Simulated assay, not measured.
Amino acid sequence: MQRLLWSLLLLATITYGASRMLVSDSTSILSTVVQSGPLPSVAQQIVAGPFVGMVADYNILAVFTIYDQITYKLPESEKRHAWQQLASYLQRTSDIDPLFMDTYRLSSGLLAYSEHGTRDAVTILAKGAEARSWDWELPFLAGFIAYDSLKDYEQAFYFMKMATKRPGVPPIAIGLASRMLTQEQGMEASISFLQYLLTTMPEAYHGQIQRRLRELKESAL
């Protein structure tokens, strides 16, 4: 409840400030978020004090701001840097609030299937898998991305094995993990899992996953 109240207060403050600015000024401020990047994790922890959740929520708002710019505003020449900054905000959030699940959903739903963010996504998910030691989903996602995008089968096996040993792992995850690690069925398994992932993710996260699905289906033709 405290986290929600602080988030609403932060959002209200940002909204009020934005309403007092000219459009050109607000565009400039949004661009600054992309260019400057987040404070180092130690500095964020000092600034946050007991309100770590509020700073983590601010980082997530910055992620959405950057993703909006990548999607609608930035020229191609600036997108690589923007993806790097987006990854930095997610990394900082995982440092200061390693249990915050939104960090990992955004890492697997946006960053993992961007052109420049796959390795960063696996690194962030690995950190989440360590912090959320009861959660089978994060090592499973890290393993799938390592398998599907990085073609790092050793790393994929490491994370898949971790996932299948955790409580509550559903049979579909165990079955997909097994199939993914069978190279002859790799593409079929990847498509199956991405389709499954779409059913578990909010619609706002679907774009990058759907792009990867199209690539796999086209390569299978």
Rank of each mutant, 00 (worst) to 15 (best):
G37P: 11
F159P: 02
T71V: 13
Q35I: 11
A177V: 03
Q155W: 02
E76Y: 06
K73T: 09
I70C: 13
L5C: 02
Q155M: 09
G143L: 06
A163W: 02
D25P: 08
L194E: 05
L61F: 03
S108T: 10
Q84H: 12
Q2A: 04
R20L: 15
K165F: 01
S36Q: 12
K161C: 00
G207I: 09
V169P: 00
L213G: 02
S28I: 09
D120V: 08
L110V: 14
R92F: 12
V169H: 00
S19C: 09
I14Q: 10
Q2E: 02
P171V: 01
S36A: 11
S31V: 09
S77R: 07
F157R: 03
I46N: 15
A131F: 07
L86C: 12
L11G: 02
H116Y: 07
V33E: 13
M54D: 05
S219G: 06
A163V: 01
Y67E: 11
D95N: 15
S107H: 07
A163C: 01
L4A: 07
E137C: 00
I60W: 02
D25H: 13
L194V: 03
I66Q: 15
A131N: 08
P139I: 01
V42F: 04
Y89L: 14
E215F: 03
S108P: 10
Q185P: 11
D25R: 14
A43M: 09
K165D: 00
A121E: 13
S190A: 06
T200Q: 08
P170V: 01
P202M: 03
R132F: 08
A121Q: 14
A142C: 05
Y196Q: 12
A173N: 03
M201I: 04
E115Y: 07
S7T: 04
I46Y: 15
L61K: 04
Y153R: 03
Q44S: 09
I29S: 12
L216Q: 04
A126P: 05
I66R: 15
M21L: 14
L221I: 11
A142G: 03
E154L: 00
L198T: 03
I124D: 11
S7Y: 04
G207R: 14
S190L: 02
T27G: 12
Q155N: 07
E184P: 08
L39N: 12
T200C: 07
G17V: 03
S178F: 10
V47Y: 03
T103N: 09
S133T: 07
G53N: 04
D152F: 01
T164W: 01
S219P: 06
Y16K: 12
A121H: 11
I145M: 10
S7M: 04
S108W: 08
A62Q: 15
S19R: 11
K73G: 07
W83Q: 12
A126V: 05
G186W: 10
E203T: 11
R20V: 13
R105F: 06
